[in-house]
């Protein structure tokens, strides 16, 4: 995998998480009092951060795997 593809994947992940945080975080705020609004925002922050950590690690692992596969393919080609 090229480094540009990795950059696109990382940007995509960030975009998805940011979009979810924004859309879900602002959803239904109008009907809430100030306390419930804060609760909602904190809840969304917690869930989005949990997913950021988990999916960020998974993506890092995936990219590491791809790099490894590419290196292995290069070694196999050199041998031939």
């Amino acid at each position: 995998m090229k480094s540009s593809t990795s950059a696109v994947l990382i940007a995509l992940l960030i975009a998805i998480l940011a979009a979810v945080a924004y859309l879900w975080g602002s959803h239904g705020l109008a009907q809430m009092d100030i306390n419930a609004q804060l609760n909602h925002k904190f809840l969304v922050a917690a869930y989005v951060l949990a997913w950021t950590i988990q999916s960020g690690y998974a993506l890092w692992l995936f990219l590491k795997w791809q790099t490894q596969k590419r290196a292995a393919a290069r070694i196999a080609r050199d041998r031939r």
Partner: peptide, 21 residues
């Protein structure tokens, strides 16, 4: 160890967010 650290980070991030409220 690595996966444990990832989960532990989630705990340490979500905990204070709950605690603050």
């Amino acid at each position: 160890a690595e996966v444990g650290v990832v989960f532990c980070s989630v705990v340490l991030v979500t905990g204070p967010i709950w605690g603050r409220r």
